[in-house]
Design a protein around this nucleic acid. Sequence first.
DNA 1: ACTTTGCATTTTGAATGCAAAAAAGAATAC
DNA 2: GTATTCTTTTTTGCATTCAAAATGCAAAGT
Lengths: 219, 219
Amino acid sequence: MSRETAIPRRSLHDELVERLRGLIVEGDLAPGDKISEKELCTAYEVSRTPLREALKVLAHEGLVVLTPHRGAQVSKLTVADLEDAFPVIGALEALAGELACERATDGEISEITLLHLKMRTAWKNRDRAKYFRLNQQIHEALALAARNPVLDQMRGMLSGRVARARYYANISAVRWDQAMKEHEEIVAALKARDGGRLGRVLKAHLRHKLETLRAVIGD
Amino acid sequence: MSRETAIPRRSLHDELVERLRGLIVEGDLAPGDKISEKELCTAYEVSRTPLREALKVLAHEGLVVLTPHRGAQVSKLTVADLEDAFPVIGALEALAGELACERATDGEISEITLLHLKMRTAWKNRDRAKYFRLNQQIHEALALAARNPVLDQMRGMLSGRVARARYYANISAVRWDQAMKEHEEIVAALKARDGGRLGRVLKAHLRHKLETLRAVIGD
DNA sequence: ACTTTGCATTTTGAATGCAAAAAAGAATAC
DNA sequence: GTATTCTTTTTTGCATTCAAAATGCAAAGT
């Protein structure tokens, strides 16, 4: 039996949390899917104990729903969830932006600028996948530059929870252009280290993102 | 086996999460304390499996630290943690305040006003414990009135993590009076349904709270 | 006396086992 | 043919067991 997929070495539940989160966020496990313990156990060749521990954590994170005696399923992503989550993400990112303006090193800022330029070319080439990935990287880098682990943890949790929505949302060309423009502003504000402005821009950016989703999913 | 202290009805791990969180937040388990699985198992008359599941969740929540093969301990509350957490809580509460101004029913507002009045008398009577409890209730009620479960979850997580600090902080009379004044403003802004103002006041309130803690804990 | 090494004990990580609850299926009544 | 109840199977929750890592201790060496 080939052992490629076997877990390398560290605590299994920890590894499993990461892998399962990946499966969910990447859409391999779709919202609403029932999660059979047995199935995953055989898939990853682990016993039920560490798997169950991992599921508990993911449930706490909001990615799966655990109903007693009825097992786990990937949490559905309702419009209401998005409506709730986005303002919170907006507030967190705004704070991250403010802090980043104070604390980011010049190196980090040019790093983010670089990512931004790459993203701009991806946008020009209409390369959705690459654009999306770079977009995420930029927001992560921004959160990192804020040097606030707590903030980063919260943001990561929520954005992971919401990232799945991108499979619903085939962003329109118009909105895409607008988002790109907003990103130009983001970088400009960061370079100017204007925390207040960056915070406002980020908040607006997230708000527009939600509006797009709302329109696409069809409220 | 005697069943009196046994957990009533629902999944054990869930119940355990709550109880252990209580122990930690209430200070019965002090920061830095080693958590022996065996000890807790006998205390609650459960086997290690659900207990371990609970510990995983709490670790994820940041209340305990899990080191592989070395067990769990109650996470310490460093000044750095507080410095990180408070701005985030501030941002979340500010958002909660803004939303509450839009969405709270008149009933909720008068409910909060009532809590506020009770808190004021507790303050007049120098009843720290009652003041603290009412203060927490007010902030919870505010978060509830925002009608955003995601926001509420995040806020609850962080404030639980930080609430333990109150055992360090013997609030000074001066700061106490200032906090009370800020609360007057909070209620005023809420009654006026002035979201922007409430947000700013809450942010400042949290900032001052942090400054107090910083002074009390040292450095 | 202090450090180091080997062994025993303890404690954790993961697997298996068992009982209860739910789901699925079969048989009967209508 | 449908609905209902009863049985069978599956799945989950928890306890127990097994294995490996870590800790404590004691004896030997410096």
